[in-house]
Amino acid sequence: MTQNPFLISPRDLAAVLGRDGVSIVDASWYLPAQNRFAKAEYETGHVPGAVFFDQDAVVDPASSLPHTLPSPEVFAEKVGALGVSDTDTIVVYDGIGLFSAPRVWWMFRAFGAKDVRVLDGGFPAWQAAALPVETGAGAPSPATFTPHSDAEAAVLLPEMREIVAAGSLQVLDARPADRFAGEAPEPRPGVRAGHMPGARNMPFLELTENGRLKSAEALRKTFAEAGIDPDRPSVTSCGSGVTAAVVSLALETLGNRSSRLYDGSWTEWGSAEDTPVETGRGAKT
């Protein structure tokens, strides 16, 4: 079986703890309804040497949207202060298993880091393997992160309008089926229910199993059942750009190097007054 180059097992990570050039990043983030608090959980216990990446703070300060990708300079300043260099092997994880870590995996790669992995199974898998845990707030030594921004990584609203109007790219929405269909209200005030015309629903949880990314064979089957061709150039989207990256990780795992992420996601699209919105679960072909 070919090993996924974007994942690392808890045992393999444990073997390189403390090694120069290896940075470990706790990328935990939770929805309000989950009633969990990422920074407090980090301080209670984390992978030894891990630093905490606050997904609500490493953003564009001028944007009113949640999780908007910051400028290369802001990103470099924030992660450099965490002691992370662009030349490091960077391992990200979260407290659920596979939920928010792929967003930070995607961000590091969007700004030029070449070797970024997701801890397979996240912190729950680390704990299940009875590996050492560190407590406290951490005190990273600053490093230099030199950004090399990939202008194609993110799709912004003007281009997203063109993509939807032309149907030029496959649009994959990672939200739950009831939100995609407009059968359930959006959790953020003022955001309309439904989805972009022509989008396909690919709930991110269907790509995972027990907090881990499914095997390549299982991923292909899941995409096929959703009427999605994982080899086509695609744009991923979700509520605010976090779980869209789970779909991006799955596509890259299958060799799709033409995957992009709509950074504003449904919060931006559904908040605009003039963007077209459809409801219903859509057909699978």
Score class of each variant (00 low, 15 high):
A81W: 12
Q3C: 01
T279F: 05
K39H: 15
R281P: 09
R260H: 15
L213A: 10
M1T: 14
T146H: 14
G190P: 12
G239W: 07
E206Y: 08
E73C: 01
A143R: 12
I96H: 04
W269S: 04
S100F: 00
F99E: 01
E217F: 10
I24Y: 11
V133K: 04
E268P: 09
V58G: 01
A101F: 00
A250Q: 11
T144R: 12
V242T: 07
A250K: 13
A193K: 05
M196T: 06
L7G: 04
G18M: 08
D229R: 10
G49Q: 11
G112D: 09
R260G: 08
V164H: 06
F111P: 02
S63L: 14
F223R: 06
I90P: 02
F108V: 03
P276F: 09
P176K: 03
T87W: 03
F180T: 00
R257T: 15
P124V: 00
G167I: 07
G198Q: 07
E41P: 00
G239Y: 06
Q170R: 08
A110V: 03
D173A: 06
T267Q: 03
A33P: 01
R103S: 00
A151S: 14
V155S: 08
W266V: 03
R192E: 08
S141H: 12
A245M: 02
E183H: 09
F145E: 07
A193N: 04
G21T: 09
V191C: 02
T275V: 10
P197R: 10
A218P: 03
A216G: 12
R161S: 04
Q55C: 03
Q55P: 02
T87H: 10
A177I: 10
G49A: 03
P185I: 05
V277H: 06
E278N: 05
R175M: 05
V118S: 06
P176R: 09
S85E: 12
G122H: 07
S100V: 00
A181I: 12
D178Y: 11
T2V: 13
T279R: 13
A40F: 06
T44H: 15
V247H: 04
L219P: 06
A129Y: 13
T2M: 11
I24Q: 09
A166W: 11
L169T: 04
F123S: 00
G21K: 08
A50N: 11
F6G: 01
E162M: 03
L207T: 12
L82H: 13
P203K: 10
L251Q: 13
A184E: 15
D54P: 01
M160T: 10
V92E: 00
C238G: 05
T279L: 06
I96D: 03
A153D: 15
V74M: 01
A245R: 01
S9P: 05
Y93G: 00
R179F: 08
I163E: 02
A193S: 08
D88Y: 13
S28G: 07
V59T: 15
E268D: 15
F180C: 03
E273R: 07
V79I: 15
A50F: 05
E43V: 01
S265F: 13
P276G: 01
V51D: 04
D120M: 02
L249I: 11
V91H: 05
D229G: 03
K221G: 05
L157E: 09
P147I: 07
P230R: 14
T68C: 09
A199Y: 12
E41R: 00
A14M: 05
R109G: 07
P203V: 13
I8M: 10
G270M: 09
R192G: 01
T253Q: 14
P10K: 04
